[in-house]
Structures are given as structure tokens and as C-alpha cells.
């Protein structure tokens, strides 16, 4: 499988950082997922081969970490935090609002493949709650209007 040069460079460099090969697995899977969208069977075979692991060992690791996925997702993964600090400041309303706006539920993907929605646990934005992450970008101190505008911007960017 071919990944970007930057990926390959990071991968081979990271291999030199640890006494065991498999130590690179978790961050490598996440970087790989960022490039190919989700962890396909082909990718699992590839990293099992590169790191002298069985495919089952790779799958076991994937299933543990909530950011890693073997299912396809929208181009923009909208992750709304509803944990305590966000809940106290309207995080659940933001999540409900997104459900309505996008017409999908938790872990759903829109028909055009542009958005996925996820209710997530604490993302470390408690003092700027309610907060969300779209892919890796933080959006904080949200209101329904603010998330509307944010999603519209992503939609515009994604359909250009």
C-alpha cells in the first residue's frame, strides 16, 4: 500500500524510537486512517506485515481505541462533546441540533458522504464549553447558531 512520503518518513523514523517494532502501531494507525479515511482490510494486512504482527493483533488494537475505525466515515467527522462540563453549558442541545441539521444520529453519515456525527467523551475543552471537534479542529464556546455557521462553512469547503 502506498501512503504519502510524509507518512513513510514519519513511520520509518518512529521505528528507530523504540526497542520493539509494534510500539509504533497506535499513532501509525491513526496517521494512516487520516490518509485513507478508515482502516481497511488491506491496511490491516499491510501493518500486520510491516510490524510482524498477526492481523488479529492489529484488529484487537483498533477495536480498543475510539478514534480508530474500520468503517467508512464522512469527509468531516463532527464530534460533539456532551460530557459534564459541556453538558452544563448546553452540549446536548448542540448534539441534538446537529442531529436535526444533518439528519443523522450518533455515528451516522450523511448520504453525500460529507458529514459524520458522533457524540464523544471529553475532548479537553472544558473551560471553553460547549465544544466540538470537526476532524481535528476544535470549535469552542458553541451555540446552535455558531455550529450552524461552522457546518455551513465545511459544507461549502467540501463541495467546492
Amino acid at each position: 500500500m502506498r501512503f504519502s512520503d510524509q507518512f513513510e518518513q514519519r513511520f520509518s523514523e518512529m521505528l528507530t524510537h523504540y526497542p520493539t517494532k509494534r510500539s509504533v502501531l497506535v499513532p501509525t494507525l491513526l496517521y494512516a486512517q487520516d490518509e485513507i479515511g478508515y482502516l481497511t482490510g488491506e491496511a490491516i494486512t499491510e501493518f500486520a506485515r510491516r510490524l510482524d504482527l498477526t492481523e488479529l493483533e492489529v484488529r484487537n488494537v483498533i477495536s480498543y481505541y475510539s478514534m480508530l475505525t474500520t468503517k467508512s466515515r464522512g469527509k468531516y467527522n463532527v464530534q460533539i462533546c456532551t460530557n459534564i462540563s459541556c453538558m452544563l453549558r448546553g452540549g446536548e442541545d448542540i448534539f441534538q441540533h446537529c442531529k436535526k441539521k444533518l439528519g443523522i444520529g450518533h455515528k451516522g453519515t450523511t448520504a453525500d458522504g460529507l458529514f459524520s456525527l458522533e457524540e464523544v467523551e471529553c475532548i479537553g475543552a472544558c473551560s471553553w464549553a460547549p465544544a466540538a471537534q470537526v476532524n481535528y479542529d476544535f470549535h469552542e464556546n458553541l451555540t446552535p447558531e455558531k455550529i450552524d455557521k461552522t457546518l455551513d462553512e465545511y459544507k461549502k469547503k467540501g463541495t467546492q
Binding site: 510500539s23 497506535v26 499513532p27 491513526l30
Partner: peptide
């Protein structure tokens, strides 16, 4: 002394 970065993937 070497210091390396390592990243997680979502797990409290």
C-alpha cells in the same frame, strides 16, 4: 538523552 513524541488514539 533522547526524547520522542508518542500519540494515542482515543482512550481515557
Amino acid at each position: 538523552f533522547d526524547v520522542y513524541w508518542h500519540g494515542g488514539a482515543g482512550a481515557y
